[in-house]
Design a protein around this nucleic acid. Structure first.
Lengths: 172, 172
DNA sequence: TCAACTACTTGCTTTTTGCAACCGGTTTAA
DNA sequence: TTAAACCGGTTGCAAAAAGCAAGTAGTTGA
């Protein structure tokens, strides 16, 4: 538990908290996949995180204020991990990282449709999405007029999956 | 040299290239500090990077297309590292990371003034800055009408340093 | 009562990081 | 002309982190 930072540069400090291969992956799955339990994060992990790494990252992220852990009333052993304002405000970073990855890396269509929508929607969409995450994770009151960005991202993803499955079937 | 990626998710792919504690630090120093030689990056490093790590990261970043290495005609041994379009397009990510770090981490005033200006300037300023980086690193033609964002960021930093030095003097 | 499920933990190996010293070639200044 | 300083690294070693597979103690539902 060494709390001495390398420097006071904002880029560096952000990197000291999030600059590893797993922290942002965990937050991404909670944020975009709404995975709230340990098992969900472990077993549905696209990248195959190991259980000890996941346990360590959840602990660190809670310690550093990026996640909070609550008890699930329906199951004494289950914990529920929630985003905090600190991690909800990562949405613009995720959006920019997604846009950069889409431009320069060999992304798959299925997994990049969300990034595309976030990029196209721009900052107004990010704000709507963050407001919605506050409803889901911080018990903020829901704005009844707003359609769900979360659902829209999810629907777009499922649509691509279904379309590609149909194409794969037709090819056989 | 294992080129198998963990997944095709844009966030994950960006993380696989940049998700460590040093790669973005190196790019930051080249981008905002205009440090182009190995020694400059090593000795002026705010965070104290080790020479073997620096050598390794420069090599990897060149391999992956985020930097290019050219010879310095004035010195047979010197290499000049330049940004590429791929790394210039990281400006929005740096800006968002800087804004997040400023909001949630214990940043120092001196090192965060640039992040503040980038945040306040918004995307139009980022575009001007990227255009200027293309002039500095990719031999793009200079737009004569534009004042230099790079110089403006640098001047603001030096001003804060000078002001804080004066305050420190007065306190003695 | 028992199998399946819960959130982890443990032990071990491999990989990465970090430190310090060192290297041969190049430039510069006396 | 020669020595000191500078150049971009490399090497060897220790410590830390990541990754894998197996295991644990408690909980739940049939």
């Amino acid at each position: 538990m060494n709390e001495a930072y390398r420097s006071g540069c904002p880029i560096n400090l952000t990197l000291e908290v999030l600059g590893d291969r797993w922290s942002l992956i965990v937050i991404r799955d909670i944020m975009f996949g709404n995975r709230r339990h340990f098992r969900e994060l472990l077993q549905n992990s696209e990248e195959g995180i190991a259980s000890n790494i996941l346990a360590d990252r959840l602990k660190r992220l809670v310690e550093r204020g990026l996640l909070s852990r609550g008890d699930d009333p329906s199951h004494k052993q289950k914990g529920i991990y929630s985003l905090t304002e600190m991690s909800i405000r990562l949405v613009p970073i995720f959006a920019e990282m997604g846009a950069w990855g889409r431009r320069f890396m060999p992304v798959s269509e299925e997994l990049s449709i969300r990034a595309q929508l976030l990029e196209e929607g721009g900052r107004p969409l990010w704000e709507d999405f963050m407001a919605e995450l506050r409803v889901l994770h911080l018990q903020a009151p829901r704005d009844p007029g707003k359609p769900s960005v979360f659902d829209r991202l999810r629907a777009a993803y499922l649509e691509v999956v279904a379309r590609n499955a149909a194409v794969a079937d037709a090819a056989e």
